[in-house]
Design a protein around this nucleic acid. Structure first.
Lengths: 240, 240
DNA sequence: GCTAGTTATTAGGTATACCTAAATTTGAGG
DNA sequence: CCTCAAATTTAGGTATACCTAATAACTAGC
């Protein structure tokens, strides 16, 4: 009787890689979507380069490859040199799927694994590319098919539909008034921590007074706090 | 008031990639561990190539890079050309960490997300490379720091310790007797489905009778079933 | 201790996805 | 309509991680 537990460590080929969408490609699609390329807006190479943190030349390379792959239709983007890029139907579908993954994972981390709000984004950003259909389906079911993620952002359905809501950045509010926080940006974890401390979380009812260089906000019964313009730029509200 | 939900899709650089361990490197380390390279056994290039499903030349390349990186100590493997490879302390630590990730994820998928047993492996194989320390910690806590995964394999602790148990493959059993199933291999999903159907799951008490070309097993009150040599090779048992 | 056969390594190539630096194209202002 | 600066693309390079084919090193058997 010999102990050889190691025999049972799985064995498999290297690499992964679904149907031809690499992690990189998905990130480009997501970035194009985020910059408006899913709604007929032509997105510039430099905007993409800036958002993705890569050199402009790298963007051009990738766009050429994406546009070239698959004859003409069936391609994931519509691209003409010097005239920007937008998503094709297929590209938009895929981009929304990745966004769905991202937001479901965020919700899952927050609801089921008790992550702090400001940490869900980074983890989801990595995992969104590697989960299977089954994983997606299972966490969606576990969470009761949520419509919004913990930041207040809408989660696209499997069909790519998305609850749309009208809102403004708090930073664009000029007068005083009472608002409901629609969503908070996940861009900056530190800022997110500030918002949480102030009670500026999705669904919160806030009384806002614009001041030079910022806002005075009161959430619920708490005492008023000063909110910088930076932070206000990361909070979206709807008027009550 | 303008709706521009897309502004809130996260923005980030591409790529990922922790402290220099790529997914590929982790897979090599895991494979070396699985072939005994964590216990002073020199593992051959061809064994690695076979297990990883890559060409021999690719293995040599990788081993040279792994051995070369970081002066001499601090390297993750001990390698001499033509004489095989084994893990260094650091390499073994990392390999066990990846195995820990894998098995925790499997347990999580099975326990929390209700995956069928035969599907957990493939998903874990992908995700093990991309979860953070926090994710690992959170699922371990959620599961109550489990010691075995759903296949019956021991989960290494954070310190790299691992419950060791003595067992034999059912295929090596010659006489008759009563055994307890210690673990089942996750290698082959189809085989796993057969085992589940037979009741051959970790912890099950089975009465075994060797026959030419296979085994006759009785689990609990169920009627006896025939088990092929192939399947028996994927079941490990301890005598009662 | 030599040779055949297996095993391992070197040499040279592919694809992805980045980079910098050098063209080029575009479009705004005069 | 022409020039010039900004945006974009081309050209040429890097690193990872694979590949095949050719060469070299071990090791058994005689």
């Amino acid at each position: 009787m010999v102990s050889n537990w190691w025999c049972w460590i799985g064995r498999f080929g290297l690499g992964r890689q679904g149907r031809g969408n690499t992690e990189s490609v998905d990130n480009y699609l997501k970035a194009i979507l985020a910059l408006g390329g899913g709604d007929g807006v032509r997105v510039t190479s430099s905007a993409l380069a800036e958002r993705l943190g890569v050199a402009g030349a790298s963007v051009t390379n990738m766009l050429q490859k994406l546009a070239g792959a698959g004859a003409s239709d069936s391609s994931v983007v519509v691209y003409e040199r010097h005239r920007g890029v937008m998503l094709s139907e297929a590209g938009k579908r895929r981009a929304l799927e990745v966004v769905r993954h991202h937001r479901l994972i965020e919700t899952f981390l927050y609801e089921v694994l008790d992550y702090p709000l400001e940490e869900v984004h980074e983890e989801a950003e990595r995992l969104e590319h590697f989960i299977s259909e089954r994983f997606e389906e299972r966490i969606a079911a576990k969470l009761g098919h949520p419509v919004f993620d913990p930041h207040g952002h809408a989660i696209p359905t499997m069909g790519g539909e998305m609850a749309e809501r009208r809102s403004v950045a708090l930073a664009e509010v000029t007068g005083d008034g009472v608002f409901v926080v629609e969503s908070v940006s996940d861009r900056d974890a530190a800022r997110l921590r500030v918002m949480e401390a102030c009670g500026l979380t999705p669904g919160a009812r806030v009384r806002v007074a614009a001041e030079k260089d910022g806002y005075r906000v009161r959430v619920g019964g708490k005492s008023a706090v000063e909110v910088s313009r930076d932070v206000a730029g990361d909070v979206r509200v709807v008027s009550e």
